[in-house]
């Protein structure tokens, strides 16, 4: 069996809230893969987002990029935010797998700005975000955002928002400023 190589190696992380540990210690590396076959053997053997404990996250990032703002690959970047409402939970698993397939299949063509993606499973509404490395690279951001909406089959009226990590860090603001919306 010849395995199909991916352009990049990817690491899946799983975060489960545990007040006795720090946020960073709650982030666990699950596995790293660099072929399509190894990707499927991993993803078909783990619980889907809709099956994990509320308050948990999955993150899929290029190898050696940690799923946190502080990482050197993320600190000048931002993310496309896809905010789902409560009754979109049945779609969550499909949206997540479609996001992951965009990443590992390099759907964003000539832009290499993608760092990874995060799915937050939350009671008030789940969120999927795709993180990019440079929030000033408008051409790349718009292309990535468009391909993302296309890859997830999101209707035109369903808006997704790009926000820089620096803006997202501002604690006291309830709503985060978004740089772009498509």
């Amino acid at each position: 069996l010849v395995k199909h190589p991916l352009q990049h190696a990817w690491t899946l992380w799983y975060y489960e809230p545990d007040r006795t540990k720090t946020w960073e210690d709650n982030q666990n590396q699950v596995s790293t893969f660099n072929t399509v076959e190894d990707f499927w053997s991993l993803f078909t053997h783990i619980r889907q987002p809709s099956e994990v404990k509320i308050g948990s996250d999955y993150s899929l990032f290029k190898e050696n990029i940690r799923p946190m703002w502080e990482d050197k690959a993320n600190k000048n970047g931002g993310r496309w935010m896809i905010s789902l409402n409560r009754n979109q939970r049945p779609e969550l698993d499909r949206y997540w797998i479609d996001t992951v397939l965009c990443l590992i299949g390099e759907a964003f063509e000539n832009f290499d700005d993608v760092c990874g993606a995060v799915v937050n499973i939350r009671p008030k509404g789940d969120k999927i975000a795709v993180w990019t490395s440079n929030s000033n690279n408008k051409d790349a951001l718009i292309e990535i955002g468009r391909k993302l909406k296309e890859g997830l089959n999101l209707p035109e009226r369903f808006k997704i928002h790009y926000q820089t990590h620096n803006d997202a860090m501002v604690k006291n603001s309830s709503t985060v400023k978004s740089l772009y919306e498509i």
């Binding site: 069996l1 199909h4 190589p5 991916l6 352009q7 399509v36 076959e37 499927w40 078909t44 479609d98 397939l101 965009c102 590992i104 299949g105 390099e106 759907a107 063509e109 890859g151």
Partner: peptide, 18 residues
């Protein structure tokens, strides 16, 4: 340079291969 790109349907088809 060249880049290894996979379409969604192609990736989904590989899901069921042994």
């Amino acid at each position: 340079g060249t880049k290894i790109v996979y379409e969604r349907t192609f990736l989904m088809n590989l899901r069921n291969s042994p």
